[in-house]
Nucleic acid binder design. Structure first.
Lengths: 229, 229
DNA sequence: GTCTATAGCGGGATAGAC
DNA sequence: GTCTATCCCGCTATAGAC
């Protein structure tokens, strides 16, 4: 739809993520960090890359952040906080199907819109310190919980079939998260369009999971699985 | 489930991936490389890590491979070749639904079984040289094509609704690939179980994509939109 | 073909002027 | 708060003995 030249006016949307607690230079460092970490990875990114991207000298980074890892943490923290905010702001309407569809739609649209920061948030977690990692895991649990309650509510009122809730939630979230691996701004789908489409897919997944014949005697299914679930 | 010390008896299944073209030491280096790259990433992995894991001196790596990048390439190449082989070996049976379900099931089970090598294959591509990267992209296209034909065949005989084929294929493959991000060997689901479950989910996704309510006035929905994507 | 030893380089973090 | 200059460590890759 958009013609050539129009991409340049699109500012890096990652800048929307930085809270008011950061000054001008700190925000520029964070934005530069997102780009560097997303394309090259944390370890392959040098502090000189980040500071050059922000237009300051290498030493200036340590005025605003205690370490390179701290820059990564602030990025990952801001992204996880914002995506949690988005799913929590979805109004719990009467129809469970509408609610789940809207929930998935917003979650997916967020990951499409912030796919660059999302890539950093998903793939560079191993570079975080143990303490910082724990903070992020906590936020992830809270996000997952929103989806769990959406499925449980639908099943409670009979709108959804009985499903292996953990597996279905994991699959739906997995589908949304994986966007950050392949989504491109110049692709065919806008974040909103993709969100709507995936909202329908999620409903189809719930129905298919309910229709599925379970293995005989598999009464304990749905237990804990992944470390970062 | 497993207590300490018991993990060591679980042979790394990545060793199944190395072809007969590699000697004993080269295979050990590749296997060690998989573990290192998966946990720390390519850039954070040192040649000392890899050689120590293989039980040889740092210099021995360069007898068997020209560079650290070459070790990564052989790993990624072997993984992509093997997953392509698996989906191609699925027999094209009469029922399109059975075929798609089996296809997804095997694709997913492969990524669960080889999730460690799969993680390297999916997340360390940026560390490859341009030439090596192109080789991998070619293999990925061939894998995607198998799924496209499965959907197209089902639609051709009326077993599947008219869907936005690119979007559906991308979502199904995305779901399978993202396993490598969270799957754990000590989790609740075996590769085969997860494959079966995801096979059902894929069918539900195809149905949901077909049943999806189009925006009002969008009378050209379906074929026309998908055709030129 | 494997080893020890090391060359050569690049990056995280810091010192101190302004 | 930003700069220039630099320390010091650790990494890839190589040299040369065995």
């Amino acid at each position: 739809m958009n013609k050539r030249g129009q991409l340049s006016f699109v500012a890096d949307v990652s800048t929307d993520l930085w809270g008011s607690g950061f000054g001008e230079v700190a925000r520029r460092l964070l934005t530069a960090g997102v780009g560097c970490f997303a394309t090259a990875g944390f370890m392959a990114t040098t502090t000189r890359d980040i500071t050059a991207g922000a237009g300051v000298s290498p030493a200036a980074l340590y005025v605003h952040f205690p370490s390179k890892e701290a820059v990564l943490f602030e990025i990952v923290l801001a992204a996880h906080r914002d995506s949690l905010r988005v799913v929590r702001e979805v109004e719990v309407c009467g129809d469970p199907a509408d609610y789940l569809r809207t929930l998935v739609s917003h979650f997916v649209a967020w990951h499409a819109r912030y796919h660059v920061a999302g890539r950093v948030s998903q793939y560079e977690l191993s570079a975080l310190s143990a303490e910082h990692f724990d903070v992020i895991v906590g936020l992830r649990h809270r996000t997952i919980e929103v989806f769990h309650q959406a499925i449980a509510r639908g099943r409670g009122v009979g709108a959804f079939p009985v499903v292996d809730e953990h597996r279905v939630v994991r699959a739906i979230v997995s589908l949304g998260v994986d966007l950050v691996r392949w989504y491109r701004d110049d692709g065919a789908d806008s974040p909103a369009e993709l969100g709507e489409f995936y909202g329908e897919l999620a409903l189809g997944m719930v129905q298919a999971a309910g229709a599925r014949a379970r293995p005989p005697g598999d009464l304990l299914a749905g237990g804990a699985q992944a470390a970062n679930e």
